[in-house]
Amino acid sequence: GVVTILMAVLGTVITRFLPFVLFPESKQPPRIVDYLGKVLPYAMTGLLVVYSLKNVRPLSGSHGVPEALAIVVIVALHVWRRNMLLSIAGGTAVYMLLIQTAFA
Rank of each mutant, 00 (worst) to 15 (best):
Leu77Asn: 03
Ser87Met: 07
Ala76Val: 14
Ala93Ile: 05
Glu67Phe: 14
Ile88Asp: 00
Gly90Glu: 04
Ala68Glu: 03
Tyr95His: 03
Ala70Trp: 00
Glu67Val: 09
Val72Gly: 12
Ser87Leu: 06
Val94Ala: 09
Ala93Gln: 07
Leu77Ile: 06
His78Asp: 11
Met96His: 08
Ile74Asp: 11
Gly90His: 06
Val65Trp: 09
Leu85Gln: 08
Ala89His: 08
Met84Thr: 13
Ala93Trp: 08
Asn83His: 09
Ala93Asp: 06
Arg81Ile: 04
Met84Leu: 13
Ala70Ser: 05
Gly91Asp: 05
Leu85Val: 12
Glu67Ala: 15
Leu86Asp: 04
Met84His: 08
Ala76Ser: 14
Pro66Trp: 01
His78Lys: 08
Ala68Cys: 02
Ser62Tyr: 11
Val72Glu: 10
Arg81Gln: 09
Tyr95Phe: 08
His78Val: 07
Ala68Gly: 04
Glu67Arg: 10
Met96Pro: 01
His63Ala: 14
Gly91Glu: 05
Gly90Lys: 04
Val65Glu: 01
Glu67Pro: 09
Gly91Cys: 02
Val65Phe: 10
Arg81Tyr: 07
Met84Asn: 10
Val79Leu: 14
Ile88Gly: 04
Gly64Glu: 02
Ser62Gly: 11
Val75Met: 14
Ile88Gln: 01
Asn83Arg: 09
Thr92Arg: 05
Ala89Ser: 13
Gly64Cys: 02
Gly91Gln: 08
Gly91Leu: 00
His63Gly: 06
Gly90Cys: 02
Leu97Trp: 02
Leu97Ser: 13
Ala68Asp: 01
Arg81Pro: 04
Leu69Pro: 11
Pro66Arg: 01
Leu86Tyr: 02
Val75Lys: 12
Ser87Cys: 06
Met84Trp: 10
Leu97Phe: 10
Gly64Met: 01
Ser60Cys: 09
Leu85Ala: 12
Ser60Ile: 09
Met96Ala: 07
